[in-house]
Simulated scan of single mutants.
Amino acid sequence: MTDVFADVSDRPLDPSTLDEFVWRREAGAVVSFQGIVRDHDGGRSVVSLDYRAHPEAADFLRRCCEEVAERTGLRVAAVHRVGSLTIGDLALIAAVAAPHRAEAFAACAELVERIKAEVPIWKRQHFGDGASEWVGL
């Protein structure tokens, strides 16, 4: 499907590549989501994250993108980062282009929720006190 871009990457993410991929002349809106590593979780200081992916994670991600694109008729894209990330790094980028903003916002929100629920990528949080924990296992 040419209206979808999906990838799992160990390199820093660039939101402009996804925005450029989804945008077309008929699109009046491009909505993108950037999931950024924050410095806290549950009242604890976070210093870094490690993301690990199932060997078929890219296939799951592509399927999420394809199903949202098929259901909405819109161009969609998503990239999830794996490896060691620090505070401020981008962990997930999703983008959707649509003729109008409401449908772009709705499709992007649906895409992000599906990725978080369906794509087998797990994170390990490293806390300021030296402890760490896996999230979502």
Rank of each mutant, 00 (worst) to 15 (best):
A53Y: 00
A53W: 01
H54W: 14
H54M: 11
H54F: 13
P55A: 04
E56Q: 15
E56P: 07
E56I: 06
E56S: 12
E56H: 14
A57F: 03
A57W: 03
A57P: 01
A58I: 06
A58V: 09
F60L: 07
F60H: 13
F60V: 04
F60M: 06
L61A: 06
L61G: 03
L61S: 01
R62M: 09
R62Q: 12
R62I: 09
R63Q: 13
R63T: 13
C64F: 03
C64D: 06
C65P: 08
C65I: 09
C65K: 03
C65H: 00
E66P: 12
E66I: 10
E66H: 14
E66K: 14
E66W: 13
V68A: 07
V68Q: 04
V68C: 07
V68Y: 03
A69S: 15
E70Y: 05
E70C: 12
R71Y: 11
R71C: 14
R71K: 13
R71N: 14
T72K: 10
T72F: 05
T72W: 03
G73A: 12
G73W: 08
G73C: 12
L74R: 05
L74Y: 08
R75M: 12
R75I: 02
V76I: 09
V76P: 00
A77F: 02
A77K: 02
A77C: 11
A77R: 01
A78V: 08
A78Y: 04
V79W: 00
V79M: 05
V79K: 01
H80Y: 07
H80K: 01
H80C: 09
H80E: 08
R81W: 05
R81S: 08
R81T: 09
R81V: 05
V82S: 12
V82F: 09
G83F: 06
G83C: 05
S84C: 11
L85W: 02
L85Q: 04
L85E: 02
L85Y: 00
T86N: 12
T86I: 03
I87R: 06
I87E: 10
I87A: 00
I87N: 01
I87M: 03
G88A: 14
G88C: 10
G88W: 07
D89M: 07
D89S: 08
D89I: 06
D89G: 04
D89K: 07
D89A: 06
L90R: 14
L90W: 06
A91C: 10
A91G: 15
L92K: 02
I93M: 08
I93S: 04
I93D: 03
I93A: 06
A94R: 02
A94Y: 06
A94F: 02
A94D: 06
A94M: 03
A95R: 05
A95Y: 01
A95Q: 05
A95F: 11
A95C: 10
V96K: 04
V96A: 00
V96R: 04
A97T: 11
A97G: 09
A97Y: 02
A97C: 11
A97H: 03
A98C: 09
A98E: 05
A98V: 05
P99N: 07
P99L: 10
P99W: 02
P99D: 14
P99Y: 10
H100T: 13
H100S: 10
R101P: 12
R101G: 03
R101F: 10
R101M: 09
R101N: 11
